[in-house]
Simulated scan of single mutants.
Amino acid sequence: MAGVMDSVDQRTQLVGQNRMELLLFRLGGRQLYGINVFKVKEVLQCPPLNAIPGRSSVVRGVAHIRGGTLPIMDMNQAIGRNPLAEIDKCFVIITEYNRSAQGFLVRAVERIVNMNWGDIHPPPTGAGKEHYLTAVTEVDGQLVEIIDVEKILAEVSPARESISEGIVGQGIADRVIEKYVLIVDDSSIARKQIQRVVEAMGIRTVLKKDGAEALEYLQGLLSAGKHPHDDLILIICDIEMPEMDGYTFTAEVRNNSALKDLHIILHTSLSGVFNEAMVKKVGANDFLAKFHPDELASRVSEHILAAGDSHLLK
């Protein structure tokens, strides 16, 4: 399995080309699942697990790995199915999401495939609201389901979503009356987390589920004779999304003379392997690792205050 992960650190050249790589794995049956390689730190045979009191049932235990202690979550159980049996024969995918490392127990790990984000699509509309999918794709004629890991983590260990006192300056909301923030993220959980923070600041929001949908929205405003600068304060955009990733979305915005000056914050759970050079290359204004409500609110406040009497506040 080490061979599968040997070249993970060399894959940053895919960034900015609307491409990504999926690590394919299986849970309790024949269905294939995928996870972005950029979020994977290591794959290993499941080590001995130690039970911890008061744990969520999804957490099968903790493991001592590379000098640290990591919670190991049963991916099959996390999406509402039976716990995986014979865990000593299972594998653990160690990931880094939202500034912390965690392990996900899976039945088997298959291989890495190179994909274009354009070939990765949002879940079917008939999937309902309670599904755990963030996207789907097809590999060698077989459906691959990409699980919304942020949804799992939010259920197992909910993040604080309230803003600490004193973070938001006085009168911030008064400066942006009738204006809004555009939130772009494929995870419904992540969209809601960001939305709650921004709206707690007294600012309206518009939500889009991927870069393609957000770009179409902005182009639609232009076609209707409206300039996004008139009402749009800034854009908070995830990086990895189906159809069009955040890098490509940012580059498309910068290449449009009518949109190029929009303020874009790339807000992503790819904190451990993020390529800061790509942020500069595509022209994003800022980068923020998910998810910390105080830092998010602070960055939004800073931009509003820095705008002063510019077009944002007229």
Rank of each mutant, 00 (worst) to 15 (best):
45 Q>G: 09
154 A>L: 01
3 G>N: 08
269 S>D: 02
267 H>I: 11
207 L>M: 09
165 E>G: 14
77 Q>E: 15
29 G>E: 15
244 M>A: 07
197 V>D: 03
104 F>A: 03
58 V>K: 06
23 L>G: 04
309 D>A: 10
227 H>Q: 12
123 P>F: 08
110 E>P: 01
40 V>D: 00
74 D>R: 11
119 D>R: 11
23 L>W: 06
250 T>L: 12
118 G>W: 02
147 I>G: 00
134 T>I: 13
87 I>H: 04
129 K>T: 15
298 S>I: 00
258 A>N: 13
167 I>A: 12
313 L>Y: 00
300 V>A: 05
124 P>K: 05
54 G>C: 11
193 Q>S: 01
242 P>Y: 05
189 I>V: 14
135 A>Y: 04
17 Q>P: 07
290 K>H: 02
58 V>S: 02
274 F>I: 14
29 G>D: 15
314 K>L: 08
261 D>K: 13
75 M>Q: 07
235 I>W: 02
311 H>E: 13
181 V>E: 06
107 R>C: 11
60 R>L: 07
149 V>E: 03
270 L>V: 05
280 K>D: 08
8 V>A: 14
175 R>V: 04
141 G>D: 06
180 Y>M: 07
174 D>Y: 09
25 F>N: 00
129 K>S: 15
259 L>S: 00
23 L>K: 02
93 I>T: 06
145 E>I: 01
92 V>A: 04
205 T>N: 07
202 G>I: 14
98 N>T: 10
9 D>Y: 09
250 T>A: 02
168 V>K: 03
101 A>E: 12
249 F>L: 15
80 G>M: 12
199 E>T: 15
103 G>Q: 03
211 G>A: 04
277 A>S: 14
130 E>G: 10
138 E>V: 14
24 L>S: 12
187 S>Q: 05
252 E>R: 11
228 P>F: 08
152 I>G: 06
216 E>S: 14
44 L>V: 11
249 F>A: 00
262 L>T: 12
242 P>R: 10
111 R>L: 09
143 L>Y: 03
313 L>T: 12
17 Q>W: 04
216 E>H: 13
203 I>L: 13
100 S>G: 02
221 L>Q: 15
241 M>N: 02
230 D>F: 04
110 E>M: 14
76 N>G: 04
71 P>V: 00
184 V>L: 13
115 M>D: 00
293 P>F: 09
23 L>P: 07
286 D>S: 13
96 E>T: 14
54 G>V: 09
211 G>S: 05
189 I>K: 01
129 K>W: 08
84 L>W: 02
33 Y>N: 12
56 S>Y: 03
115 M>L: 15
217 Y>A: 06
195 Q>P: 01
248 T>D: 06
122 P>T: 13
74 D>E: 07
147 I>Q: 03
245 D>M: 06
43 V>S: 04
119 D>H: 13
261 D>W: 01
67 G>M: 08
130 E>Q: 04
104 F>V: 11
177 I>Q: 10
134 T>F: 05
200 A>V: 06
3 G>A: 13
194 I>A: 08
314 K>Q: 08
206 V>S: 03
214 A>I: 04
2 A>T: 03
286 D>K: 15
114 N>D: 11
45 Q>W: 00
281 K>M: 08
81 R>T: 03
